[in-house]
Design a protein around this nucleic acid. Structure first.
Lengths: 216, 216
DNA sequence: GCCCATTGTGAATCGTGGTTCAGTTGTTGT
DNA sequence: ACAACAACTGAACCACGATTCACAATGGGC
């Protein structure tokens, strides 16, 4: 029995795995999904190109790992943001505003993860991420409807629409590029999103102002 | 002077040019932008691959031509839809609803033209199209604000958000796929969009119902 | 130190699809 | 009919980037 995976080796392997994923994520943050190429990622991770294939069957799986990581972190963040809200409507506002704020803080990466075009083989993976996000929104919207804070409507469809509104308004190609004005942008978009869900203008405005601090 | 471009030739050249663009558009309608490849497009147009380059310097220019054609047709349709509306708010509703309805009628092509990932070289071209659409929305929103039908707000940003809402709700990956339910979907999305702009729920509902026929 | 399984290497391979170009075909004017 | 030129052809070329693989290096057990 001349070889055994020592704990030491195990650790090194895990570290490399993580390093590769991190390198890929960084590449995506800097140059979008198109910049996630095997050779550059490998170099950034300090290994040879071939080595990547010791850790991932193919590029698709690598990107899937990156998306899974992002997905977990972001969904978690949204849940935590909603957790300390006093009620369903407030929780919804928190989710909307922290989503917008977080996307704005990592524009390129968010664009890569959510919207940027990729190989068709990756569509199912990205779909999963989008679905998780939409479901999170839909759940909060459903709760607000159930508690009578919003008019009856198809929560799933509304969630998809709000997602589109926020994404387009933050990282879409026509989104305003105004460094320093992020807070206003988030407030504007949140106001619009809440109104879209049927909240009357004055109530929505109040909720946005009141939520601003919590969501940051 | 042994050769001159006869009217006959001129016509044939123009016809071929159009045939190539049409072939490219059809390819996009069927298989998305990825299906717009020189060889297949040429075959569909009944010519050799090399001939395409007698008409377009490169693939980018071909796609630009396709987008320009779509752009002109769609913007024109939106303007006509708004033209016979009785007032600014009604015109806005018309634009919103016919945009949604038209996108739904040509999902794949619309997706290819608006949202599908493409080579970075095409980004400016697509951006132009999106900007035209957003400007059309922004103009109508601005008019409705000016006439006091909508609360004061950044019309350009609102337009971008509404565009995102409608696109995501119609051809986004999570959009409901329900053949035969298009009318309900358009109404739902229009209601949501109008509310997003600050129109109170009851008024928005009335406007949507009243606009449904006009927009079709 | 020595053997062996595992891991790492990176140049070569492969597939894809846009682009080129030498040769062929078609059209015009005399 | 023929010269002169434009348009068409499609096989060959090329760039790009993922993937492979024969070989080298490393770590573990004895």
């Amino acid at each position: 029995m001349p070889y055994r995976r020592t704990e030491n080796v195990e650790r090194r392997l895990a570290a490399r795995h993580a390093a590769i994923v991190a390198a890929a994520r960084e590449a995506a943050s800097e140059g979008g999904m198109a910049a996630v190429q095997i050779a550059p990622v490998a170099q950034r991770a300090g290994i040879a190109a071939g080595t990547v294939y010791r850790y991932f069957p193919g590029k698709t799986d690598l990107i899937a790992a990156v998306l899974a990581e992002i997905s977990e972190r972001e969904i978690g963040a949204l849940r935590r943001a909603a957790a300390n809200a006093p009620g369903p409507l407030s929780a919804l506002a928190c989710v909307i505003m922290s989503f917008a704020a977080r996307v704005l803080r990592h524009r390129r990466l968010a664009f890569a993860a959510i919207a940027e075009p990729v190989d068709a083989a990756l569509d199912p993976i990205r779909l999963k991420f989008r679905k998780l996000l939409a479901d999170e929104f839909a759940m909060r919207i459903g709760a607000a409807i159930a508690s009578g804070h919003l008019p009856r409507q198809d929560a799933a469809l509304a969630a998809v629409g709000v997602l589109g509104l926020l994404v387009e308004g933050t990282i879409g190609p026509l989104a305003p590029q105004s460094p320093g004005r992020e807070r206003e942008l988030v407030q504007s978009l949140a106001l619009t999103a809440l109104r879209a869900l049927g909240l009357p203008d004055p109530r929505a405005r109040g909720l946005v102002v009141q939520t601003t601090v919590t969501a940051e």
